[in-house]
Design a protein around this nucleic acid. Sequence first.
DNA 1: TGATCTTTTGTACGATAGTACAAATCTCAT
DNA 2: ATGAGATTTGTACTATCGTACAAAAGATCA
Lengths: 236, 236
Amino acid sequence: MVRKPTSKEAARKPNMREAILAAAEELFATKGFNAVSVRDIAQAAGANPGSVTYHFKTKDGLLLEIYRRHCGPMNLRRSELLAAAKRVRDLQDRLEAIVRAYVVPAFTSGSDLAGGGARFTRLRAVMSAEGNEVARKIIAQTFDDTSHAFIDAVHESLPHIPRTDIVWRSHFLLGALYYSLVTPERVSRLSRGEADGSDAACAIEQLVQATVAALQAPALDQAAPARRRPVVAGKT
Amino acid sequence: MVRKPTSKEAARKPNMREAILAAAEELFATKGFNAVSVRDIAQAAGANPGSVTYHFKTKDGLLLEIYRRHCGPMNLRRSELLAAAKRVRDLQDRLEAIVRAYVVPAFTSGSDLAGGGARFTRLRAVMSAEGNEVARKIIAQTFDDTSHAFIDAVHESLPHIPRTDIVWRSHFLLGALYYSLVTPERVSRLSRGEADGSDAACAIEQLVQATVAALQAPALDQAAPARRRPVVAGKT
DNA sequence: TGATCTTTTGTACGATAGTACAAATCTCAT
DNA sequence: ATGAGATTTGTACTATCGTACAAAAGATCA
């Protein structure tokens, strides 16, 4: 070792811990958990690999802290918006407001956290796809209450639809939401540039509109398969 | 050695190559690409790690072969069903048949491949979430034609809806489809056991019904935000 | 200033990754 | 049965993984 840079050009990070969290969030959300090494994260954050161990002990601990950081605020925001939505008088407007209360916090930050909620939601989508155990546990125990509250609110607005159908359609909503954040460029590509898949405001409007219509669809009567299946050959 | 299989079909390991492909498919689809090692795959297939290298050269090559194996048949099946759907007279039935032509091949096998298309579709969902490059390339060049054909067919059935909206809603369909295959147990859990998220037939019906309704929703008029946004505070 | 606590750095270690390769084994037409 | 080609096995190499840990550097306050 010849010498060390004594100059102040180092420009000390005010908060290395935050930088590591942000870098990890971004990398996990785009490449998945296992494809990203602790060294990758440290480098992206301008930190030393040992620093990650110091602040978060393990790689799982780092992921856990990311979830702890976001789950509370996002859940709170959803609850607030849902409570407000339930006070809307007009039935059609109320349903739309309920759906919006579910969707909007997933796209926009529920607190001052940089980058907004979209990055964290994308992270959740990726962890869900990878079957990550750490994520699965904390998600189930953090968001299931919110999901039930959402389903109940929808059910109150659409009492004639069986709860089962609403569960399925809410599930589709979350899938569509996730996928919109995972591969926004596919929308741009398929629309031949006419739409911008990365435009959060646009995605929200499209998603809300489509979901409201899907929720309002007639119930699926399992008992009466009247004249279904016009084309597809029967399968099982 | 006690005995050897005299028949031309070996009794012990009929086709190790197929066993490796099947094991890799299953593991990749549930844990993701990077979380699964070549040794994991070999063990699950009852093979030696070196055997994987022999048959597929690299881990990427193995993934590529999985895609090659499924893309053709699934695409073909979709084309056939779409062609048949477009011949349906009744407009409502036709739209439903078109959606079904897109959804059904994703759940059921397009050929004799064991396990059906659901496993491969789930694999695609996971690879998409992880941003896998190998998968991204082959998918874009294999399925974009089919996606365009599907969008065109829907657009012909719903000429009053802007193409952009149809692209978004089709995107949501794929996201919902993926998510249904990735976390079916969430449906069972949220419905408190009333629905079985793993029931493919049920998932297909729910998805088709919800998607048809979403596609038929009124167009989003970007120019006139009339009295939108009843609850959510303005953002950007 | 010097003592103490926090944070960062550098380095190392054991485990495991993907893959190469030669030897062993199997298959099958001759 | 035998030899040639296809397949499977066993092993080894290098790279990188997550993590531990001691030393260096920075921060804080008597």
